[in-house]
Write a protein that binds this DNA or RNA. Structure first.
Length: 573
RNA sequence: GGGGGGAUAGCUCAAUUUGGUUAGAGCCCCCCGCUCAUAACGGGGUGGUUGGGGGUUCAAGUCCCUCUCCCCCUACCA
């Protein structure tokens, strides 16, 4: 048994997330967490809302709400959506929590004590109309390179050239459209990342189990030489910048820490909040002087977040000089796209978590998104593929298997798990299948290869159908009831096994199957022991029920309706 | 501009790390079987110049060069 800390990239606060966000970190982290729990590990799965930054302030303003109240509402909405998708967080915290304020300020103080923080004045665009400094991409204007009119301050979408907002011709605020903008000087705290390059490189070189994507991105930045990075912003909503006495830092009264400085720290702060809430101990997860070297720390994130997790956050932790736990393994995902294009609220393209749960049960989404996880490349969501996942994999292969064997048991064996008969070549066949497939399934989960894990799960379900065809108890029943009983008993045990292996992915359907077969909670773990015994594990004579239809199929008319409402193939971006 | 990832049956993806039998699977389609079951299930089959071009090698989807297209990052979006 191992102690495993799992974090999912923090979902940003400005609204309920779309299915791509769910599929890219929160859901796979959850499936992994559930699988590791079933394997008997001591798992802590931590997530939180990422609440600071300019977009949060603007979203609140647009909603006509106070930022804090807006974040309260959105945090609740996201927590609710997560619960509806059965995300089994041990704690779902907030980057705006007092614990994170304190810890972020703590890190800034110890980093400064290590001479890794200094003040520097830079130039930034200020919008008089909006009464705020504008991040580079919130300034738009004419591109000095190609004269495109809608160029953003950081990059021109037309010619692709990287820009400095100061160079834009006729700059205006992307927030209000106002041209009343000016360049102002502003003082900020900078993190001396350059001083930590060597220590960071040593750590990256020593790391194992990172995907090539993560290693190559980290090394590229290191090769170019880490630049010092501003870790404060001119905003009001965020973690206040304090001095060593906890008072507002002189000259920084109207500034807060940069969201990417405080957000990853919230992984730790949320763990502290979990400890307070549950009476647990957070230090064995995060402090190497409290046992965290024995903790396996796995981070899940989208491909855009890799540099922050491999460089920025480790810089904070290493630079502190304190014994903080660093990440062991990363799993980075590409994007789920909507028919190959981007999700867009305004253009009604794509489904968000709160809408999705009204369309189909959580299990259906979880299965489809994991079976088509964007592991190698971006993966396009389509209603047609969704229907295939639900109808073929869930309804026909798994749902129908459970249905056919339980119904048959009800009609011919009095609804009880039958005794009698002896195993034949057919039972030997299915046992051999399980003896190779179950270890392979577990290996895929341990390697966090989700598509392969789903493929193996489905293959095990499908093997059950093949077994029933081979054993054909309905034929044997006419001449030898005991011989038929062998097939029925094995089939019922297989149904239970299928529920047990399905738990990380489709927890609700799995529970329905296991409850119908009378499998107690205590017998649902992945401690399989002797695999040959799995087809005789259920107590003979136990009364079972045929569960209601486990998965309702998706009809052509459903697809047409959803396409009309949420967009589909006809408006590819 | 720089860096990284990707392009493989009609569709969605394996196999590329470590070059090695006839490049696999699911869906679709066709044929057969079964009749316990949600018109489901099982078996078999059709289908590939591995994005284009060039090279290395006894052998290339895999290594090298080059071209095309898509995605991410490029340090003040998160």
């Amino acid at each position: 048994m191992a102690r495993i800390l799992i974090t999912s990239a923090l979902p940003y606060i400005n609204g309920v997330k779309h299915m791509g966000n769910l599929a890219g970190s929160m859901l796979p982290a959850d499936v992994y967490a559930r699988a590791m729990r079933l394997l008997g590990h001591d798992v802590l799965y931590i997530c939180a809302t990422d609440e600071h930054g300019t977009p949060a302030e603007l979203a609140a303003q647009q909603a006509g709400m106070d930022v804090a109240a807006y974040c309260d509402a959105m945090h609740d909405a996201q927590a609710g959506a997560g619960a509806q998708f059965d995300l089994s967080y041990d704690y779902f915290g907030r980057s705006s929590a007092p614990s994170n304020h304190a810890l972020t300020q703590h890190f800034a103080h110890v980093l400064e004590a290590q001479d890794l923080i200094y003040e520097k004045v830079s130039k930034q665009v200020y919008s008089n109309a909006d009464g705020r400094f504008l991040p580079d991409r919130y300034v738009e204007g004419t591109c000095p390179n190609c004269e495109f009119d809608g160029a953003r301050g950081d990059q021109c979408d037309n010619c692709g050239k990287l820009l400095d907002p100061v160079d834009l011709i006729n700059p205006y605020s992307a927030v209000s459209g106002s041209k009343d903008v000016e360049i102002r000087e502003t003082n900020h705290l900078y993190l001396r990342q350059s001083a930590l390059s060597d220590r960071l490189r040593d750590w990256v070189d020593a790391s194992e189990g990172w995907p090539p994507l993560a290693t190559s991105i980290a090394k590229k930045w290191l090769d170019e030489g880490l630049r010092d990075r501003a870790i404060t912003r001119d905003l009001s909503w965020g973690v206040p910048v304090t001095d060593a006495n906890g008072k507002p830092r002189a000259g920084f009264e109207d500034k807060v820490f940069y969201v990417w400085f405080d957000a990853p720290i919230a992984y730790i702060a949320a763990t502290q909040d979990w400890a307070v809430k549950t009476g647990g101990d957070w230090e064995p997860y995060w402090k190497t002087d409290a046992g965290a070297n024995d903790t396996q720390y796995v981070q899940f994130m989208g491909k855009d977040n890799v540099a922050f997790h491999t460089l920025s956050f480790p810089t904070t932790l290493i630079g502190s000089g304190e014994p903080w736990k660093l990440v062991d393994s990363l799993k980075a995902f590409n994007w789920v796209t909507w028919y190959g294009g981007k999700f867009s609220t305004s253009q009604k393209r794509g489904v968000f978590m709160d809408q999705a749960i009204d369309i189909a049960p959580s299990d259906n989404w979880r299965w489809h998104l994991m079976a088509n996880a964007p592991e190698g490349d971006d993966a396009a969501f389509t209603w047609e593929e969704f229907a295939v996942s639900v109808n073929s994999d869930l309804a026909n292969v798994l749902g129908n298997f459970v249905n056919r064997i339980t119904k048959y048991t009800a009609s011919k064996f009095d609804g009880r798990i039958p005794a009698g008969g002896v195993n034949t070549e057919h039972e030997a066949w299915i046992i051999a299948e399980l003896e190779t497939r179950i270890p392979a399934l577990i290996a895929h989960y341990e390697a966090r290869e989700f598509r392969k894990a789903m493929e193996q799960t489905r293959a095990i379900w499908a093997a059950g159908n093949e077994y029933l065809t081979r054993a054909a108890p309905w034929s044997l029943y006419k001449t030898d009831v005991d011989a038929a009983a062998v097939g029925v008993r094995a089939g019922l045990n297989l149904a239970a096994l299928f529920g047990i292996i399905a738990q990380p992915i489709i927890p609700n359907a799995a529970d329905k199957i296991l409850s119908a077969l009378g499998v107690p909670q205590s017998n649902r773990s992945w401690d399989f022991g002797d695999i040959a015994g799995l087809i005789n594990a259920l107590p003979e004579g136990t009364a079972i029920k045929a569960p209601d239809v486990l998965f309702t199929k998706i009809e052509e008319s459903d697809i047409a309706e959803w396409t009309a409402q949420y967009g589909g193939g006809q408006d590819k971006a």
